[in-house]
């Protein structure tokens, strides 16, 4: 599903040049659950942003389902993103001014799904995430675990092929964290490819494979059994 080769990303300021990704190459197959690990500043989040088409690589190739997407313009990237990719962040990133229902509904609005159908899909997803009873609440009225479940619901509502999760349990206690990890595992079992950045060995154990990074490069890959 994903094939990156010699991917480079360098951040430049007036005085400093930081290499975030250094000729990084790897592949993720459809249906895989991959965890990316490494110390802070090793380029994990940069990698995730490029995989999510939120950022451009400076060099290298990025094939998504066999299509080179590294040079896509903003419109094409947005289009590919809304139909294929879901995001889960450490800090949930819910919109405070929207209710649970409205937050989850948002991706469907951008993909042009009709209101009646949207209602049906959102309710199904909220049901699945066991958050239906909170549908009219605002994010500030929810616990961290509930907020992350809403974020996961929003990530999956469009039925994406790929979910990118950036430290999804980083702001949660262990019980809520396990719950979220179980949700991701369930989704993966239903066929969704997952790439997850994490610092937690515990979370990484839920994946099929761990890619370990250092200084923008892959240093090791572990296959989980």
């Amino acid at each position: 599903m994903i094939k990156i080769s010699n991917l480079e990303k360098i951040y430049r300021t007036e005085e400093v040049e930081t290499v975030a990704l250094n000729k990084l190459s790897f592949e993720v197959k459809e249906g895989e659950f991959v965890a990316v690990m490494g110390p802070s500043g090793c380029g994990k989040s940069t990698l995730l942003n490029i995989l999510g088409l939120l950022d451009d690589p400076d060099a290298g190739s990025f094939l998504f389902n066999g299509i080179e997407v590294a040079g896509f313009n903003e419109r094409k990237r947005a289009d590919l993103r809304k139909h294929n990719i879901g995001f889960v962040f450490q800090s949930f990133n819910l919109i405070d001014e929207l209710t649970v229902f409205e937050n989850v509904e948002l991706p469907l609005i951008y993909t042009g799904v009709k209101p009646a159908e949207r209602k049906k899909i959102v309710e199904e997803v909220l049901d699945k995430m066991v958050i239906m009873h909170r549908r009219n609440h605002y994010p500030q009225q929810l616990s961290g675990g509930q907020q992350q479940r809403v974020a996961v619901a929003r990530a999956v509502v469009n039925n994406p092929k790929l979910i990118l999760a950036d430290e999804p349990t980083g702001n949660l206690d262990s019980s809520n964290g396990n719950e979220v990890m179980q949700l991701l595992t369930d989704l993966n079992e239903q066929g969704t490819t997952i790439v997850m950045v994490t610092h937690s060995e515990h979370d990484a154990r839920y994946s099929h494979r761990i890619i370990r990074m250092l200084d923008g490069q892959t240093v090791m890959q572990n296959i989980m059994v």
Binding site: G52, R75, A78, K82, N93, L106, P107, Y110, T111
Partner: peptide
């Protein structure tokens, strides 16, 4: 800004 990021993340285009 966060809302803008989220909207872009879930497929919102600049024109929208």
């Amino acid at each position: 800004s966060r809302e803008i990021g989220i909207r872009k993340c879930v497929g919102g285009q600049r024109s929208q």
